[in-house]
């Protein structure tokens, strides 16, 4: 990629659009999550702040903005303050490479999938930095859980996505999208159902969402890794959670649901629609399933997902070699 003025302007515009997208996503999704929780539990949810509680998240953000930030006396000051920023920072780069539409990509790279998998690991680093710097036993246990969970779930995730990369012959997300063009049965969810199954389960593990939200399991760890964070530090961790939710939803849309290819009139709206539906699915799962135990979580991973992923990869390789 040449560094011309036009490209730099394009990159800056893309970054700006991504920041707006991430903030809007958090505002809308927190509201949707609370409404969905209300729907599942047969109550209205946020209702009176704005029409149907639409301004609820705005009020929350205003409050969190004006809240005192407590620095625990025994904390590592620099690490404590930088961890929430570190949680949000890699996201901007990741969202640059996602192909939203045929012409809508921030930065075209031919190793997009690899880049995304590499940079999602940085969020784990932010969590362990926050947990360590808080100097609180609950934070530290939460951070340790987050690391062991993320490391464990990254392996089946990569195995599942590797099978896709085998089939499409590329790590370029645009190429993978184009390989699914045509009609709906060309989508990877129908050609790689097992990979999709593994991907969905690992999504919850990677984003620390219920039923795998053990790093912040409040019944045993008060608040998990963000126990000591108040105000905007907590808000940034919260935003990072919703951003990583959006990231895996975009990945699901692009890798398994054909990205911008729809049944008719292809365009970026299909990517966003599929992303929204997958996020709604994640919220639905959160309010439906109870939290698992930590040994169960790791057993699901090492005893089931890992062999299944290896099997899927092996079968894909054999089929690709034979036909």
């Amino acid at each position: 990629m040449d560094i011309s003025l036009l490209n730099v302007i394009k990159l800056l515009l893309a970054l700006l659009a991504i920041i707006v997208l991430l903030v809007l996503n958090s505002v809308v999704m927190v509201w949707l999550e609370r409404k969905a929780a209300g729907f599942v539990q047969r109550r209205p949810g946020p209702y009176v702040v704005g029409p149907h509680g639409l301004l609820q998240t705005v009020a929350d953000s205003v409050k969190l903005l004006a809240k005192q930030i407590v620095l625990p006396g025994s904390s590592d000051r620099l690490l404590f303050l930088s961890a929430p920023v570190l949680a949000m920072f890699p996201m901007f780069l990741i969202f640059l490479v996602i192909p939203y539409g045929p012409w809508l990509t921030g930065l075209e790279v031919n190793l997009g999938l690899l880049l995304i998998l590499a940079f999602t690991g940085l969020e784990t680093l932010a969590v362990i930095a926050g947990g360590w710097a808080s100097n609180n036993k609950y934070s530290l246990i939460g951070a340790a859980r987050c690391v062991s969970q993320s490391v464990a779930y990254e392996i089946p995730l990569i195995l599942a996505l590797l099978a896709l990369a085998f089939m499409c012959g590329s790590l370029d997300l645009t190429v993978i999208t184009e390989a699914q063009s045509g009609w709906v049965w060309r989508w990877n969810i129908f050609r790689q159902p097992l990979a999709f199954f593994i991907f969905v389960i690992t999504c919850f593990g990677e984003t620390n969402r219920a039923p795998f939200d053990l790093p912040e399991g409040e019944s045993e760890l008060t608040g998990g890794y963000h126990t000591e964070y108040s105000g905007m530090g907590f808000a940034l961790f919260f935003m990072a959670e919703y951003t990583s939710m959006m990231l895996v939803s975009f990945l699901a849309a692009v890798l398994f649901f054909g990205g911008s290819n729809g049944p008719f009139i292809n365009g970026f709206w299909w990517t966003f629609l599929k992303m929204g539906l997958f996020m709604t699915f994640m919220i639905w799962v959160r309010w439906t399933f109870p939290r698992v135990r930590f040994d169960q979580l790791l057993n699901i991973n090492w005893k089931w997902l890992l062999p299944l992923g290896l099997l899927n990869l092996w079968v894909t390789a054999v089929v690709l070699k034979l036909f």
Binding site: R34, A37, G38, Q41, R42, R43, P44, G45, P46, Y47, V48, V49, G53, Q56, A59, D60, K63, K67, V70, E218, T222, G223, H226, T227, E228, Y229, S230, F234
Partner: peptide, 23 residues
Amino acid sequence: SMARWDLARFGAEVFRPSARQAD
């Protein structure tokens, strides 16, 4: 905070387990 009286209508259903995030 449950279905019948639903504190969530007024945005107050977010029971935070950590004192650092509570109002």
